[in-house]
Amino acid sequence: MAVNAIDVTDLTIAYKDKPVLWDVDMEVPSGTLMAIVGPNGAGKTTMIKSILGLIKPAAGQVLVYGKPYAEQRHLVGYVPQRGSVDWDFPTSVLDVVMMGRYGALGWLKRPGASERVAALDALDKVGMKSFAERQISQLSGGQQQRVFLARALVQDAQLYFMDEPFQGVDATTERAIVTLLQELRSAGKTVVVVHHDLQTVPEYFDWVTMLNVRRIACGPVSEVFTDNNLRKAYGGKVAFLSAENGKH
């Protein structure tokens, strides 16, 4: 049996005495495109951050391709929320994309010509090559997201985490991003996306984890993305969805 891309067991995370994630299990097979959905405060971002070792869990274990994250860094790419950085920072688009290569370079080594080529290549893939020399503050929201995506692409990872990549982007960019994510999956990579728009889950993703502090469900979209589970995750607030998901 192939090893899972992610194995989360009994993960519990608390801020002070308030649990953010409670005894969560999650298994993500390699080669899936997975959405993490759940209401605000359900712990979606916390989940990603704890897998990446950015938040220390109170209890539980996280394995990435069967080993602790610290040993597997080089296999993992990360796209934080667009709003988490200062877009007025004095740097160029190309420079931001090259930051994706820093992990492979390690301490002290400087990015050179090959990093530049990789970054330009990635920018080309997201349709932003002509913006390479632009100051990042001149980008629109959708362009910022594409730059972040390009930065993840140059990481050349096996497993990608993306925190709300569709937030505040226009329809064209959303389509472009989805196509790119599906290409990554076709290339055998695993992609985990914190997602907000329930309507598009069946169309974009093949695997889904539904969270609300506890794990509600985790599995193939066709099996677990049900009205019943949605109601469990969101309370009674998703009645409007039953029309789209009437197959059960």
């Binding site: 951050k49 990446l52 070792g53 950015l54 610290a70 860094r73 993992v76 990360y78 934080p80 988490s84 950085v85 200062d86 920072f89 740097t91 931001v96 930051m99 820093y102 992990g103």
Partner: peptide, 13 residues
């Protein structure tokens, strides 16, 4: 990197 995007810096070690 640590100034622009501390989260990525941490994730990259």
């Amino acid at each position: 990197l640590a100034t622009f995007d501390p989260a990525l810096a941490a994730a990259l070690g």
